[in-house]
Design a protein around this nucleic acid. Structure first.
Lengths: 137, 137
DNA sequence: TCCTACGATGGACGGAATCCAAGTCAAGAA
DNA sequence: TTCTTGACTTGGATTCCGTCCATCGTAGGA
């Protein structure tokens, strides 16, 4: 039993076979999958799982804080199971590959009060962009 | 004649009435419009302008570096004409409103070499998220 | 074992953006 | 000025991503 499934059980998550498979796919893959990729991998184990269920489950996992949603440009959102370690992302502008990175400092602290315009600022997301070794040629 | 149109003329941009109107809309509004909003404002002056042309023109302005594309979650992209002053964005998670902000420090410098994984990192984009005064109620 | 509220299903739907073939026109050439 | 041509525009179709909804199924408590 994975840590993720144990935590979900602790939260009284109703454990259906569909939810289990989605959680296992995320837990097993330490890459950043799109919803369709999650659906494809889930369907290998549970062929009749529907896309709506995958979307519902991913949304719940995001709400529960177990998974982070990463929006990259106009493409499909990606889901990052590494939600318990603060990190940022490095995206290849060539092929779209994503890596988790750990920059120094705390970006939230770099936004002075007079630059907050009355907003209740709760999150700072940093996206580094560049070419990966393969795309840089 | 605006600075933007002068720069475009200098780049040998073929100046059609449609492109002129789109450029003027962006140049006149210092807010972050969606493509549909740009289309609506452009259509006030040139009623028959098509959506495809607005998308084409916006894409060209982004390629030329005159406009910055801002992707916010699952919503429509917004277009930021303030491309010549480095800045970051503060987004309201309630209504999607965007403000330009100027955080301290240089986020690019916060990514140490061993965290770059061989990428040629060229850009660091910071998105602050929170509730604006109106949405915070 | 039975009940029932919660979850799953899949097809319809919606918004955002792109594609395409046909028509139009800006701007350089003569 | 007029001609010519390749670049630009058009709008409807299409794709992609995601959500909605009415109906069916089932996990898990009684």
């Amino acid at each position: 039993m994975s840590d993720l499934l144990e935590r979900l059980r602790g939260r009284r998550w109703r454990l259906t076979s569909q939810r289990r498979v989605v959680a296992e796919v995320l837990d097993g893959e330490h890459v950043h999958l799109t919803a369709d990729e999650v659906h494809a991998r889930a369907a290998e184990r549970l062929p009749e799982i529907s896309r709506a269920t995958v979307y519902n489950t991913l949304g719940e996992l995001v709400t529960l804080g177990e998974v982070i949603e990463v929006s990259t440009d106009g493409r499909a959102k990606r889901y990052d199971p590494n939600a318990h370690e603060p990190h940022q992302h490095l995206v290849c502008t060539g092929c779209g590959a994503i890596r988790d990175v750990h920059p120094l400092g705390n970006p939230l602290a770099d936004l002075p009060p007079e630059q907050r315009f009355g907003f209740t600022v709760s999150q700072a997301e940093v996206t580094y962009r560049g070419l990966c070794p393969a795309c840089a040629g």
